[in-house]
């Protein structure tokens, strides 16, 4: 086992070196930093293949890529957060002196000492690290949860509830209902036909109705109620299938993009 691992490692390293040399050679005309550039492109291809190797099984190359990825991305977010939120957004609003110190453009509005409150709350949060002061970190968490709960409460009450109710208000007999006689003399299955439009309105209404019944928790799903609930879950499943199929087609194009990188930017087989 150990032996095969070593051999594999040696092969991978040799291929890596070979690719580096070749890539640097092909780049030498174009840029001054060709050795570094060659390394970076090769490394990038190496990481791509390492991640793809996960499809076969978990392996050392994948583990390497994964662990490196975690470290680099966490630090990347931390740096971006520091520079964009703290330095560029918070500091200029706190005080003139601090923005001068941080060489930041002060904000057009007035300085606001209220911005010291989130700083204090942030420091309270850091108290988690001390074994005794941990309880105080609940305050900022409570602040965040309370604020966002209130925010979400009205937002969803409006958009997911009231607006959705009023969206169901469609005339079930079509907008241009001209009587039974007219309806039967114009039976047409084309998308613009009155029959299709009316049928769609009915399906939508009944679908919503049965779907809501399915989500009814405090009543036993038996008899007519149970039948409606069953129709509800069927409609849900049809929808999930359609959404699944739609996404499948979209994802295939992502893979095509990655393969293009390997064959064009790295191996330069296709142009």
């Amino acid at each position: 086992m150990k032996k095969t691992t070593f051999i594999l490692m040696a092969i991978v390293s040799a291929l890596f070196l070979l690719s580096w040399i070749l890539k640097a050679g092909s780049l030498s005309g174009e840029t001054d930093n060709y050795i570094l550039q060659g390394f970076l492109v090769t490394f990038s291809a190496f990481l791509t293949l390492s991640v793809l190797s996960f499809l076969y099984a978990d392996n050392p190359l994948y583990k390497f890529a994964e662990h490196l990825f975690v470290g680099v991305s966490a630090a990347f977010w931390m740096c971006m957060g520091f520079w964009t939120t703290i330095v560029q957004n918070l500091i200029p609003r706190l005080s003139d002196g601090l923005s001068k110190f941080f060489e930041q453009q002060p904000q057009p509005g007035d300085y606001n000492f209220f911005f010291f409150i989130p700083v204090i709350l942030g420091i309270m949060l850091l108290m988690r690290l001390s074994p005794k002061g941990g309880w105080i970190s609940r305050w900022p968490l409570a602040f965040i949860i309370g604020t966002t709960a209130g925010l979400n409460f009205v937002r969803y009450l409006r958009s997911d509830f009231i607006k959705q109710i009023s969206n169901t208000f469609v005339p079930l007999l079509g907008t241009e209902w001209q009587g039974i006689g007219h309806f039967f003399s114009n039976l047409d299955l084309s998308a613009s036909g009155q029959l299709v439009a009316i049928a769609a309105n009915w399906v939508i209404f009944l679908g919503v109705f049965c779907g809501l019944i399915y989500f009814y928790f405090s009543k036993e799903h038996k008899g007519a109620f149970g039948a409606a609930s069953k129709v509800g879950i069927w409609v849900l499943m049809l929808t999930f299938g359609a959404s699944f199929g739609y996404t499948v087609m979209g994802r295939i194009s992502l893979l095509v993009g990655r393969i293009t990188f390997l064959f064009r930017d790295w191996l330069e087989i296709i142009s």
């Binding site: 990825f69 975690v70 991305s73 966490a74 990347f76 977010w77």
Partner: peptide
């Protein structure tokens, strides 16, 4: 904590 990048 792992990281704040979706695919990482």
């Amino acid at each position: 904590f792992v990281t704040q990048l979706q695919f990482a």
